[in-house]
Nucleic acid binder design. Structure first.
Lengths: 148, 148
DNA sequence: TTAATCTTTAGAGTTTACTCTAAGTCAAGC
DNA sequence: GCTTGACTTAGAGTAAACTCTAAAGATTAA
């Protein structure tokens, strides 16, 4: 299966504009063109796009992703660099997941808070609900009390 | 405990510039100033900053965060709006965590791949290691084969 | 009191990642 | 063959979130 730029874009939930931009930035050196100059994306190219997407979502900038692509083009002498990059990336992703779980706790707290507030028609929650007041201390107090 | 803009910034891992920018954008209407015009951040203000940080990290734009702050300023008649916002946000955070876990799987696969490649000094991994080849199908194949 | 450091404002500049336009070329269906 | 829609390039424009500058005023420590 081969894809035009439009089909590839659709599959990846991007626009053709974006794929051309990535190409211009040197992220897609592997994509071939027809004699008429039109890009053709192979299945393998789609796997590259999946990895580029993954690296982008985990916080790498396009120029850092380009660095990785460049290493891939340079051959086996860069294998260790690539391995190290992914090891670093693993740490970052794990940190991001932990951070997101903490954010989820804060959001859950706010939902509990506003459910209580809506029930009473007022923001005056902590006086009625000691449990929420304690939770608040745990989630917000630590940052504002400790550390200094 | 009260904080100058510089101290507040340090505590939140931001710069004073950024906090002034947030203020200019209407995100910090609660921050008071001294008679000489200098901002004073209270403990409560720091909690606001923690929530702003949380909303920012979970993907809200500053103008959407401002919307929330505005609702807070408007009083109890916006309680339900705020509750709904956090409920939506909860969904988004849960999706982000799931996405990150998928990204982690991809990164872990790449680490396994490159560890194998480094061991053999070559990128020619799938021929030697069928297990990795299958994993690759599971992680990348589904996106490139299904859906169309 | 005086130097060093912090804070103030308005406003200009930067970075990143798109996003769009124009003018033209190519491919598929009728 | 013709139309329609997708593709090409170079390059301009945009949005978001800072980031920095300059010039002046405030605060702190010796």
């Amino acid at each position: 299966m081969r894809y035009s730029i439009g089909q590839a874009a659709k599959k990846m939930n991007l626009t053709a504009h974006t794929l051309r931009y990535y190409d211009k930035e040197g992220l897609l050196p592997f994509v071939q063109k027809t004699s008429a100059g039109q890009r053709v994306f192979t299945e393998q190219d789609m796997e590259w796009l999946v990895i580029i997407e993954c690296l982008k979502e985990t916080g790498l900038q396009l120029k850092e992703i380009k660095q990785y692509i460049d290493w891939c083009q340079q051959g086996d002498c860069t294998l260790e660099k690539r391995l190290n990059m992914f090891k670093q990336q693993k740490k970052k992703v794990e940190e991001q997941i932990m951070k997101m779980q903490k954010n989820l706790e804060k959001v859950n707290f706010k939902i509990a808070y506003y459910e209580e507030a809506v029930k009473n028609g007022s923001v005056d929650v902590y006086k009625r609900n000691k449990c929420l007041a304690e939770q608040k201390e745990r989630l917000f107090g630590n940052l504002t009390e400790s550390g200094k």
